[in-house]
Each structure stands twice: as C-alpha cells, then as structure tokens.
Design a protein around this nucleic acid. Structure first.
Lengths: 190, 190
DNA sequence: ACTTGCATGTAAGTCGTTACATGATTGT
DNA sequence: ACAATCATGTAACGACTTACATGCAAGT
C-alpha cells in the first residue's frame, strides 16, 4: 500500500491532522512555527512538491476554491492519509536524532581559531538561543487552555516544553563553555 | 581565494588539525566517534569525494605511500588548509543548530497514534540514549590526561562534556514525557 | 501609489545516501 | 582456510535548497 515517502511528507501530513484545511503557504507558516524546532522547515517549493506527491498518493485531498477573486488550493488529510501516518508511526522505527550543531562543530576544533573569535561565536549563540526561547515560548503560550489530557494540543505542548528545556540547557552549556574559556561574562561591566 | 565548500569539507579539515596524517578510512572512523554526535558522520564515499575536492583546492596534501605491499593514501592538512579553516570560522557565521528529531516529530502528532506505541517509542529512545551515553562517555574517557588548558584535547573534551549533558537531559525529558503519558516506569516490576 | 503579504510554482544545481565492486591484509 | 578488517572507489538516485518568476489582495 503506502509507499515509503520522505519523512518530510509525513511531517506535512502530521500538520494536517490538527483539523483545518491548509494552503501550502499556511503549511509553510505552521512549519516555521513548530516543525523547525524539531525537524526542519522545508523550503516553500519543497512543500508544494510534497503536497503534489501526497495528493497523487491519495493521502491528501486538494480542494481548489475561490478566495475572493482568485483560485486558492487548500489541502486536507484523507482517511488513507490518516492510515498511512499511523502505519508509518507504528512500523517504522523512529531512529536516533541527528544534530547538526555548527557551534559545537566549531568548538570541537577551537584550537584552530582565535580564542576571542570562539567566545564571540558563543555569545552570538546565546543571543540566538534567546530568540528561539522567545519564539517557542510564544508558541507554547498559544497552546494554553487546550493542553491537557484529551485536548487537541496536548502533544504539541509536550514537545514545546521539551524544546524549551532543551534551549535553556543549551544556554547553560554555552555559559559553561564561556566560563571555561575564561570569559568574564557581562557581570563586571554592568 | 578559498571557495565556499560544504560544511562537511571543513569538518573533515578540522579532523585533520589534530596532528596525524589520516587515510579516508581512518577519517571515517574518527567521524563515527566524534563528528557523528555534533554534525553527521558522512558516508565513506562522501569522505573520499570531499578529500579529492580538498586536495584539488590545495587544502590537504595526499601522500600516497606503500603500507606493506599495497598503496595507501593518507591526507594531511596544508598551510593553506589551516588558513582556509581559520578564515571560514572567522568570517562565516556559525548559524543555529538544526535538530532532526524523529522522536519529537512523532510525539508532536502523538494524537494520531496508539498511546502504547508512543510509549514504546520513548522506551526505545531511552535505550538508544544509553548507548549514545556509553559511546560518547568512552570517547570522553579516552581524552583524559590531555584535556586541560593548552593541551591538544581541550576542545574535544569540552564538546564531549556538552554532548554528555545533552544526552542525559534527553533521557530526563523522555522520562518526563513517559510520566505525562501515564507510563508507570520500570519501578513496580523490578 | 506603493509596499507588504498571500499564494503558487519552475529550473537548476548540490549535497549526500545507498548499493555495489574490488582487492589486499590480518587474525583465528 | 576463512572471516573480518582495511582501503578505495563508482554509479545511480533523491531530497532539498536557492534563485527566479508571477500575480492578486490588502493596508497605509
């Protein structure tokens, strides 16, 4: 039955299990808000490509309708899509996470760089972590009120909390690395 | 001068900054031990491809010599390679980590799966985390004795400690998710 | 009037994987 | 003698990205 699709296809399928019909554009936005923290946010063009493939396999239904004056296509998951997603989750091992961590990669070969540059990189990372924490924190807040057992956003809330803890831990590790590199931190200047 | 190369090329270059001349085969082994935790362990064929490209750019020197009866090629980083690596680290922003986390992806759409299956997945993940902790812990141990300031393995030790903490935190998050899903844990049965 | 957002794609190219092929060396 | 490890590649293919192109709708 269900041919093996790239994981990204299942990720898109998963986004469509939360009820609404979505356009490719909207899927991209949702992916930017949620998927990007745990998987990737695929390029827009990739999303349209996957949607076409999913439609060809009958896993999503393309609903072309008029929005104001123009033609817009939104997509809904089909019963076959639900089934394919469930089968995939039941029978395909999840596998171990792949972490592409440019900061750690560069820190690994830190002896080949200026110490000041390495510290700068870690400071930059802290700023980006702050941003990520704020972004994901915003998402987490938006789920409040429907995040208990049996409610629709229980699982998204679970992974958001996981992600928030992860980013917080990254910040701690970064601080620790900075301390180990003799960075005084922003304490004295303030 | 230094064209933009894929990050994997710089990662290989980085592995060659630890002193020895390495064959492609040995680079693959080192990558499996260290790089795989923070970046990826490229396929063997990919390593040979990158090595050829690096050699074409003059960033590594290919040293074909006889090992016993057969021809073996080992690679050493050149001065130009050191320079290219330093330039890359100095001028290219590291960028934010990309996490491809199939467990979190599946947990995100947990409502589309059997609860028992989700718990099973988390248990499986715990086992894999144990293995990763053991593997990386072994690497960490092998660095002892040369992991202080000014010593060659200072930075590898720093990232290994970071990684060990990360895996430990993942285990905690997994346990927490299991608890939230009503998993009693292995306590009562023991 | 003009910019920003919404919405959908095509084309080209790269990175990287899997599968396969080959052969020498070492250990048991 | 046989298996495992060392060592080096080729070929085919797929996922994904970037760059580009297009045009309507809505806000200021």
């Amino acid at each position: 039955m269900s041919q093996d699709l790239p994981v990204t296809a299942y990720a898109i399928l998963g986004l469509l299990t939360f009820g609404d019909e979505l356009t490719g554009y909207e899927i991209k936005q949702r992916a930017d808000m949620t998927l990007r923290f745990y998987w990737v946010s695929p390029a827009t063009s990739q999303i349209y490509t996957e949607l076409r493939r999913l439609a060809d396999h009958g896993l999503v239904r393309a609903d072309a309708h008029a929005d104001g004056g123009r033609e817009v296509t939104s997509y809904a998951i089909t019963d076959a899509g639900q089934e394919a997603l469930r089968t995939w989750m039941a029978e395909t091992p999840a596998g171990f996470p792949v972490l592409k961590h440019p900061v750690l990669l560069r820190l690994l070969v830190g002896h080949a760089s200026e110490p000041a540059r390495t510290r700068q990189m870690l400071h930059d990372y802290l700023v980006e972590l702050d941003q990520a924490l704020a972004d994901l924190g915003g998402v987490r807040e938006s789920l409040r009120g429907a995040d208990s057992e049996g409610e629709p956003f229980r699982f998204p809330a679970l992974v958001a909390d996981w992600g928030l803890d992860y980013f917080a831990a990254e910040a701690v590790h970064t601080q620790r690395a900075l301390a180990s590199l003799g960075d005084p931190g922003p304490s004295a200047t303030a």
